[in-house]
């Protein structure tokens, strides 16, 4: 499935890296990123398209919400999407 997430981010050094790192580390592929300043209130609006064949988008959203730089996370839409992802398995 491909999911489109909309994030409101408190602009802080490393915030974007933290978000992108978390998404990929938690087993999702990023296929689109848009980010722009939301104005002069120190907020950044981000949209991410993320893909995973089996991982739960609800869990990813809760993991993103835990980041201190992330103010809100919304799921805009989910579509079927074909992407080969090699997942590592614990030994």
């Amino acid at each position: 499935m491909k999911h489109t997430l909309k994030l409101s981010v408190n602009t802080a050094e490393g915030a974007i890296l933290r978000i992108i790192g978390l998404v990929e580390r938690r087993g999702f592929s990023l296929v689109r990123i848009d980010a722009a300043s939301a104005g002069d209130d120190g907020q950044l609006d981000m949209e991410l398209d993320v893909v995973s064949p089996e991982r739960s988008i609800d869990v990813l959203m809760r993991q993103l919400e835990k980041l201190f730089d992330v103010a809100t996370v919304l799921l805009l839409q989910s579509d079927t999407y074909q992407l080969e992802i090699k997942e590592s398995r614990a030994c």
């Binding site: 739960s56 609800d58 869990v59 809760r62 993991q63 919400e65 835990k66």
Partner: peptide
């Protein structure tokens, strides 16, 4: 206590 553990 951690919402992100539910359903992980």
């Amino acid at each position: 206590a951690d919402p992100s553990e539910i359903g992980k």
